[in-house]
Amino acid sequence: MISVGLVDDQVLIREGIARLIEISGAATTAWQCDNGEAALTELRRDPVDILVCDIRMPGMDGITLLKRLRGEGNPQPVLVLTTFDDHQLFLDALAAGANGFLLKDVSLEKLMHAIETVAGGGFIAEPRLVSQATTGIDDAPPTDPEILSNKERDILKLAAGGLSNREIAAVVHLAEGTVKNHVSNILAKLNCRDRTQAVLYAIHWKLL
């Protein structure tokens, strides 16, 4: 059973999501709160498998919460749910270290698939926002579907979660310099300027 922490300032929406999660039978809501600061407190008291978090909230918002977690080296899986169909917010969430990004009009099936994917170490994003953010690139990878090795995919997933090279090195049991070389290779293979763009392209090409 996946344990979920819900962070949303709108009580009706938060409780509605909690009910959907309970209906699924695959997860349970461990606690709820209405801002990022409260979520940090709850996490210290009662760790969960995944945070399902809004972006725009009074006090500490979702982006700031992500930055605080990643700044502390915390790889806590975070799925962002928002009502705002805004690809810049999507990019900001990715850059801050979100592991998933969906709009709140999702079906129960799609929500639970996202929760299971992100809690399991995967990455997921709203397809139309990915399309907006990757307008103008080819639909197919530059060479072939196996352009990234399994190790490079693992490293890119961790980078997508906001981990630094040093933190990634500790997870995958490699030297920090080796991880840095892998990241450079990933950017070169995908012809990307930075990690956020590499994550976007990898999602678009279904490499993650």
Rank of each mutant, 00 (worst) to 15 (best):
A30Q: 02
C33L: 01
D34K: 09
G36H: 03
A38G: 07
A39K: 00
L43D: 02
L43Y: 06
P47F: 08
V48R: 10
D49A: 10
C53Q: 07
C53A: 05
D54N: 09
D54P: 03
R56N: 13
R56D: 07
M57T: 02
M57Q: 03
M60C: 07
T64A: 15
L65R: 00
L66S: 01
R68E: 13
L69F: 04
G71C: 08
G73P: 05
N74A: 09
Q76I: 00
P77W: 04
V80K: 01
L81W: 05
L81H: 01
T82V: 11
T83F: 15
T83R: 14
Q88T: 13
A93N: 03
A93H: 09
L94C: 12
A96F: 06
L102I: 10
K104I: 10
K104P: 05
D105P: 06
S107Y: 05
E109I: 10
K110R: 15
L111Q: 02
L111V: 06
M112R: 01
H113L: 12
A114Q: 04
A114R: 01
I115N: 00
I115S: 00
V118D: 00
G120K: 05
G121T: 06
G122T: 07
G122D: 09
F123C: 07
E126N: 12
E126M: 05
R128K: 15
L129K: 04
S131P: 05
S131W: 13
S131N: 14
Q132Y: 12
Q132H: 12
T134M: 14
I137G: 03
D139A: 11
A140K: 14
T143N: 08
L148T: 06
S149A: 10
K151N: 14
K151P: 02
K151M: 12
E152M: 06
I155S: 04
I155R: 03
L156R: 02
K157F: 11
K157G: 09
L158T: 01
A159L: 11
A159Y: 02
A160D: 04
G161Y: 00
G161F: 00
G162E: 01
S164G: 09
E167I: 02
I168A: 06
A169W: 01
V171I: 13
V172Y: 11
A175T: 06
E176M: 11
